[in-house]
């Protein structure tokens, strides 16, 4: 008894006893493994996609200017004012916001620890600058001006760093998709081999069916239905396991606070995409079986 039979998927009798093939026993498990891997890879792709989208939206068009603490608080404030006024003159700057000392220290806290401000470390002050969309800022010019207004101040360009990061992540995303495609390809090849063997095993029956007037399509349909069921069964097992793993992984990630800003999460709709893996496996199996069997039968009488 194969798993498929136990689950009652083969109650309808077919002319060709495909459910007794050795392939009927092993194929669902092979497909299950592949569906598991495909689901994980696809989830990886969806996760990276989410990161790309969220990062692209959240931080585009911003600069951060760091003004180091000067010898006195007043001097620091004066320098900040100079920088702000020169920024306001720039047409491509939409908004300028000076972070308070408290906000600035909160931002550096994860790196320096809670006590940094308390023990009087001279913390730099941050200015958050929003740029107009498609703004073309001459960064070198801006850096020169900012440095003149506040010696030692630095202009940090998020966009560039972000673009580079997103570029790297996009490669990861592409790689995950390639892995998904390769797994599907391997699954198709497996089914092609299994169906070729099946066709050979059942040669006597297919010959009789041909001789009593069966069309190739009639015979191929039985293999196709059989492969569809095996694919669906294997896909459901594999994707089911993968879903459990992903849910567990999400729980673990959700507990890690420092990762929260990275948006390492699967959007709700992506579960619907993952749920497509078993039907896709079934459809792939059916198509591969039909193609293989029709080709095999065409060489027969």
């Amino acid at each position: 008894m194969t798993v498929a039979m136990r689950l009652g998927l083969f109650r309808r009798p077919t002319d060709i006893p495909l459910d007794r093939d050795p392939a009927a026993r092993t194929l669902p498990w092979i497909i299950a493994v592949m569906a598991f891997l495909a689901t994980i890879a696809l989830a990886g792709a969806l996760l990276l996609n989410n990161v790309i989208v969220r990062w692209s939206n959240s931080l585009s068009g911003t600069l951060t200017i760091q003004v180091p603490a000067a010898s006195g608080a007043e001097e620091t404030e004066a320098r900040i004012k100079r920088v702000v006024s020169l920024l306001r003159e720039d047409k491509s700057v939409l908004r300028v916001r000076v972070l308070s000392a408290a906000e600035s220290s909160a931002l550096v806290e994860p790196w320096l620890g809670r006590g940094a401000a308390a023990i009087g470390l001279p913390l730099p002050r941050l200015i958050d600058v929003g740029l107009a969309e498609d703004a073309r800022v001459d960064l070198a010019e801006l850096r020169r001006k900012v440095d003149a207004a506040a010696p030692g101040a630095s202009v940090e360009e998020h966009q560039k760093w972000l673009d580079e990061m997103i570029g790297v992540i996009r490669w990861g995303w592409r790689l995950a998709l390639v892995v998904v495609v390769l797994i599907f390809f391997a699954a198709a090849m497996t089914i092609v081999f299994a169906m070729r063997t099946s066709l050979r095993i059942h040669r006597a029956v297919t010959d009789v069916l041909h001789l009593i007037g069966a069309r190739d399509q009639y015979i191929a349909e039985q293999f196709q239905r059989h492969a569809f069921r095996l694919g669906l069964l294997g896909g459901a097992i594999g994707t089911g396991f993968a879903a459990l793993v992903l849910i567990g992984l999400e729980r673990i990630l959700a507990k890690v606070e420092t990762l929260q800003a990275m948006h390492l999460e699967l959007p709700v709709w992506s579960w619907a995409v993952l749920a497509l893996v078993p039907p896709a496996a079934a459809a792939l199996a059916a198509v591969a079986a039909r193609y293989t069997v029709l080709r095999g039968l065409a060489r027969m009488m």
Partner: peptide, 30 residues
């Protein structure tokens, strides 16, 4: 060929019944 073959009934010398189908299912096959 299938169309032509449907006009021909054959009793094979070695019967060629399909083992896992009942007598009724075998006869209903054509």
């Amino acid at each position: 060929l299938p169309e032509l073959r449907r006009n021909i009934g054959v009793v094979f010398q070695d019967f060629r019944l399909i083992d896992h189908l009942t007598a009724l299912e075998n006869v209903a096959l054509p």
